[in-house]
Design a protein around this nucleic acid. Sequence first.
DNA 1: GTAAGCTTTTACCAATCGGTCAAATATCGG
DNA 2: CCGATATTTGACCGATTGGTAAAAGCTTAC
Lengths: 215, 215
Amino acid sequence: MAVPRAAKTQRRTRIQEEKEERILDAALDVFSSNGFRGSTIDQIAEAAGMSKPNLLYYFRTKEAIHRQLIDRVLFTWLEPLQAFDAEGRPESEIRSYIRRKLEMARDFPRESRLFANEVLQGAPHIEDELKGPLKELVDEKAEVIRTWARAGKIAKCDPYHLIFSIWSTTQHYADFDVQVRAVLGQASAGEGRFEDAARFLEQLFMDGLRARAGK
Amino acid sequence: MAVPRAAKTQRRTRIQEEKEERILDAALDVFSSNGFRGSTIDQIAEAAGMSKPNLLYYFRTKEAIHRQLIDRVLFTWLEPLQAFDAEGRPESEIRSYIRRKLEMARDFPRESRLFANEVLQGAPHIEDELKGPLKELVDEKAEVIRTWARAGKIAKCDPYHLIFSIWSTTQHYADFDVQVRAVLGQASAGEGRFEDAARFLEQLFMDGLRARAGK
DNA sequence: GTAAGCTTTTACCAATCGGTCAAATATCGG
DNA sequence: CCGATATTTGACCGATTGGTAAAAGCTTAC
């Protein structure tokens, strides 16, 4: 029997690459809407259009699929905050961070829900990443915000809770999509709610931060 | 064999009441941290300190336990928004709504997570409640907010997204507790983060809503 | 074409799942 | 104390779970 990934050729076949991608995409569907424990290999295999043993030829365990997905998502998730630039204009930096996070909620809701499921259930697989890389990044950007506040460029406020509130408000539109749609009703048929949300959030945060900036 | 609830006596024993409460409490633990599909009757039974058949004597199915929990939580969850008073002062109404929601995130995190799990996974058990009672309540309160804005008492803004942002920012401290703790580090040992959050959120929302109220 | 390696399938396994059953035991009114 | 009823238990069931073994089928370089 041949070993799938990391074969002796060291070079991944075209088939391998295709199938692994199909599996990960299917797994993202399943994991993001059922959580880890609530998802089954059979579900993923069916969604990927292959038999269970065939799927297990590419990923040895259910955990392996999940881990790879989580790793990708974590990277993607940190990107917008990485882009936060200390040299930029505070107002436009924060505004575009909000906009990017909201775009991610719109364009990658499955990734958002995968992450939400993981954290909601105690983050058993990513506790280290949260306490390590994530915390360090947030610490760094919080310091930037604090500096802006001290320079009087924005209102004084707790930078950590500012970041939390941007995370929560934007991700809400992915994670609680069903609820948002239910409450907005027919009016939310299209993607208009994301534009409305963008307008609202920009007003909320920009006005809130500008309010006492001059004082 | 005796039928547990709704016995012919029509009157619930003290034992029944106690055991059912213990089961629901244990189930809240388990469901809130594993989701519905990720939770097992055995886990709940063990957490409740009884055998599985014994538990099933009080609740015929896993669904039955979950449904009862969800019903309770839904009721509790709507209460603060119910209290929103059209006759009150806009500023204090919104402020106290935020405070109450944040207190609930602090005091009933399991309930918040149970609800979050449910909605995150597509709200299969409560879609009707969301589209019915919840939507109606939100519609009603949104109209109140809109009236306040038209009267110039608060800044003009989309009332639905205002409500969403209050929900998301406050519930974030329950649902993403692990992440919040990880990022804040040791500093969040106590419950201080809730007071910090309260200060931050009040400033954010009140300044944001006041900003253009005068214009 | 053919051999070597890659991919897929069929059949299967032990463990766990939600739930049942009947017998054993505890409780309580009289 | 007794009988009736309420509660608890252990043994069990079929279905589903994550995962394996081995052989069959397919690609590809030569």
